[in-house]
Amino acid sequence: MKVENFIYEYRLKNIFQNVNFYFEDCQLNFILGENGIGKTTILDCIANVDEAKDDSFLGFPNNWEIAYLAQENGFNVGLTASEIICFVKQLEGNVQLEVPNIIEEILHFKFIDLTIEERKLLLIYLNTMVDRELYLFDDPEKYLRLSYSQMVFEWLRQLVDLGKTVIVATNRLDNIFDTDNVNYIKNNQEVLADSYLKIKGRMAF
């Protein structure tokens, strides 16, 4: 899956000018960059949010083959975690991952009573439950302590083991392995795409 010569303007501002992205199939891929540099924009385009995808996007699956966890999710309802999981289980196609202990512990709590961290974990878990070809996660580590974000990446790597492609947009380096494919957005004209081992020497964080 790749994006070639991508140009994107928003309110007369050039977000991207002729940049390329490259994503490995059945791998954990990262879009790395500072806040506000356009990570959500590229994820929205990949997911074709509001028909934003154009001819620059090659090899990406259709919308119904994509799971996409947005950065913010104010899902303030009185349903319990268990009821929400039950709802997702009723949807067509599920991935049979083992229910993590942290999720087991919060099953009987109402979503609105969960901490912001628990809510985030539950939402990430829900997105790993559905059977899709491509999984997009926008800043999944936000609000999570390091140990929890490491656990989340274990879930994501389990998806990869099942032959799924995962793309994570983040500004944190904690959970990237040297072998992971990284697209580092340096600026609106330059995106470095390669394994993290090769990229990190050229990054200017």
Binding site: W64, Y68, A70, Q71, E72, F75, L91, N127
Partner: peptide
Amino acid sequence: IRLRESGFFKTLTYLMGS
């Protein structure tokens, strides 16, 4: 509107497929 402004409309759309 609340669902959309909270960002969850996007997540739910892709969970649902539509």
